[in-house]
Nucleic acid binder design. Sequence first.
DNA 1: GCAAGGTC
Length: 772
Amino acid sequence: MYLIITEKDTAAKRIAAILSENKVKKVRYPKLGVETYEFTYNDDHTIVMGLSGHVVGIDFPNEYNNWQKNSARDLIDAEIVPITTNKKIVTALKVLGKKADIVTIATDYDREGELIGVEALTLVQSVNPDVKFNRALYSAITPKDITHAFDNLTTVNFDLADAGHAREVIDLVWGAALTRYISLCAGRLGKLFLSVGRVQSPTLALIVEREKEREAFIPVQYWEIEATLETKSKESFIAEYHTNRIFEKEIAERVYSNVIVGGDAKIKSIEAKQRKEKPPIPFNTTEFYVAANAVGISVNNAKRMYQTLYEAGFLSYPRTDSTIYPESLELRSLIEMFVGTEFDEYAKALLKIADKDGLKPTQGKKEDPAHPPIHPVAPAKRSDMKEDEWKIYELVVRRFFATFAGEAEWDTLRVEIDINTEDFKTNGSRLTNEGWRWYYPYNKPEDRVLPHLEEGDVLKITHKELFDKETQPPSRYGQGRLIRVMDDMGIGTKATRADIINKLVSRYYIHGNPLQPTNMAYSVIDTLEQYAPTIVKPDMTKQLEADMDKISEGQISESDVLKESREMLNSVFDDLEKNHEDIGRSLQSGLREDRIVGKCQRCGSDLSIRKSKKGARFIGCNGYPECDFSLPVPRTGQVVVTDKMCDEHQMYKIKIITEGKRPWELGCPQCNFIEWQKKLEEDEKNGIVAETSAERAKRIKKEKAAARAEREAKAANPTELSDIKGLGTASLQKLNDSGIMTLADLAGADAAQLARETGISSKNIEKWKEVL
DNA sequence: GCAAGGTC
């Protein structure tokens, strides 16, 4: 049997279709819980099976699980063991791998793909040591690329996989050791741990740096002056002072007084030009996020909806760096498929261009050997998807079209005007040839049409205005922009950047849109910058990339790189441990500051988030016990104190962050409390009696007791597997995977045999069978 | 309860 292993199911399906010339059979292995694609290829029974990315990983041995038992430093030289992260696929791989005579690794054509391939190969070899193997390399799943890859099979690049493995180890060791150290120092254990990592920490540092720049920013006052001018034919337009901004007050006052309403202005010169605007480059993941963000779709939503459309077969693979279409992509037929759809006129217009001059797509600078740029793969109707998904689909289709279209052309005018010896100017612009902007009408700058003007024209000043302004600090990062900066700096990957931002939000380091850091983030970044600067800088990734290149070229061994990395981390710990007390103090002050909500209106002390003896949290006055002012806070979720102040109560607005939910903008705690009381009063009027917290606790206790009683009753007289006492969801899944669906199935099964198949202890199985 | 990287 010939086994072909791909990185994901969709790749397996499409490669099988191409190699079999559509004579493929989808086979389900219910016991294994996987699907494969099978056919005859070169007279051999052939099975194509998809993985789900990495199905194995690495970790420390179990005895390191206790954070307090070992010192964080022990992790540096701790043993590293392989772990299974996807049991179903690992089992299936072994079962099928055992029967294989030859295996082709057909995972993605990049470093992680090589590592994923070697991981799979190692699993197959563990049950079939003599199996023959080779590697297929392809950049797009097109008939051309795939047949070429399978006609030119090559060898597995173990050095490249080693490079990937080195990255795994370094990330784990540095991340875990520093995370534990910082968390233990700050006394933040359990859910509140403070994470550190090669990618997340430099990303967080960017946000903290920007916030510091904003704080250090000193605004400078400046003025702008506009004059409204009218032509003889009574058409008006606005002219502004030639430098736009005026930083000296005396000049602003002089210019303003020289502009006399009712007086004359004279056109000094008119310069007409043409400006050409190149069409945009193809979307890669980063550019897609930025564009989706720009039309008001959050990075998370764009990611989720794109994934749906990819799985439905409408759009190409979502994670790619490439901004250059590979040659094997059939661009013309991708355009032709839109003839007769909503995009008919655009497709036809492009085909006309293609017939005349051939298709000349734009291209960016980045190539990704694993996947082509983002593009549509099937035509769709609006009714095929949700409204927001259509927005995404349309964006991708229009961008795809735009990459083949011509330049947009603008006529521009620059007019210089004399007003009483002061230099004024105005600019005009008009789109004369839509070009690619017809296909891609997003963020189109508006025309600025001026009346017909000629040199020497005398105009009437009908109005004047003086604007008093201040320079603005650099703006905070929006999510799309942050992802682009991460891409430019080379940190994270196309597949992980969005997740890294989510991680920083759920770790309570950043919040809001645009993004801003909590005080805790300041403290963590300050501490790391001082004592472990390596981990906060993008240079660590650059160095790692360089080392990985050397490993993959065989110039240096993986173990040498790891040894050097561990030595470096050990010297970082020398510094950390010397300054243990300082670090603890500075981290804890960050923690305290995040809890200050505002000033107490009764006594003027700080209000902060505190905990009662019973563990319930509330906003209390730091002047306690002299002042006992307090306000309630929701019982669950992370409380984030924002920098927006309620003008009425001098308190910062708060929001509640719960993982997996949208943040709850609670606003000013005092306003919220007042509203809540109003609602209570109204409820009382309407005869609705609110539950007190004691009543609530009682009710929950009662409900839990009732549920327990029901479970016990069922266990005494079970009707389905899940009724059996001690049989949890994990075991139920394992039983189902082995074909045990009902009580009768279990009764009829042999305990020892079933134990071998499922990995459940035979003692447990026998105990369950006893009840039946 | 630790990372970052795949994929869903």
